[in-house]
């Protein structure tokens, strides 16, 4: 007990004024705006698929993009909440990405059924996964950097969700950039790797979000 009193006195010496961290909603809006800027810059720099306007008229493509955006928004909010020890006392909100992912799975299954006769798959395969991953590196670094400054008590979940948020930005970019209509290819090489990404995120969370 004497040690504890000693420690309390020692800690209390640090009387610097502490600026409270920003609200998770503000944090996630910042991340969303930064990602939107990054995405827009990349599309201006690399260009976008020539049939984008026509594709956005297609129900399943539009649904896919809308739900992918929802995944990005919900994972971003969830990552921001998970950066706080008590999840800002809104633990239920951290589970919202599960709903987005469920809807996304259904949308992709419907899109796959609607793709009849199936569109021919492109020649490449894993290059798409690689491109998405490379594109997601910057948002991932930034997200982890901001999260490290806070104090997550759910390293695995926080890491996994943060990496999924970054990966979804990459997935969005590739859908806008690559002229490819094969849903099977998109599921296989754009979205299924998200499962692996979530596990890598857990591992990264364990390492980088320690405090």
């Amino acid at each position: 007990m004497a040690n504890i009193n000693e420690l309390i006195n020692e800690l209390a010496q640090d009387t610097a004024v502490v600026k409270p961290a920003r609200h998770p909603a503000v944090l996630s809006i910042e991340w969303i705006l930064a990602a939107a800027f990054y995405l827009a810059t990349a599309l201006i720099f690399f260009g976008y698929r020539p049939d984008l306007t026509a594709k956005l008229q297609e129900t399943w493509f539009l649904a896919e993009i809308v739900v992918l955006v929802a995944i990005f928004l919900t994972t971003t909010l969830s990552a921001a909440l998970l950066s706080f020890p008590d999840m800002h006392q809104m633990p239920r909100f951290t589970l919202i990405p599960a709903i987005s992912f469920s809807i996304f799975t259904m949308v992709m299954l419907f899109a796959l059924q609607a793709d009849k006769p199936p569109s021919p798959p492109p020649d490449h395969s894993f290059i798409c996964t690689m491109s998405i991953t490379l594109f997601a590196i910057l948002p991932a670094i930034w997200t982890f950097y901001v999260m490290r400054k806070l104090a997550s008590t759910h390293h695995y979940r926080a890491g996994s969700i943060a990496l999924l948020a970054a990966f979804s930005v990459g997935a969005l970019w590739l859908r806008f950039y690559e002229q490819n209509d094969s849903i099977l290819h998109v599921i296989e090489w754009h979205y299924l790797p998200m499962i692996v990404v979530s596990f890598i995120g857990m591992w990264m969370g364990k390492i980088f979000l320690k405090w």
Binding site: L11, S83, H88, L150
Partner: peptide
């Protein structure tokens, strides 16, 4: 207590 000290910026006093 050390963790509290390190993470005190994550508490805003409104909750």
């Amino acid at each position: 207590l050390i963790s509290l000290h390190k993470a005190r910026h994550t508490y805003d006093g409104n909750r």
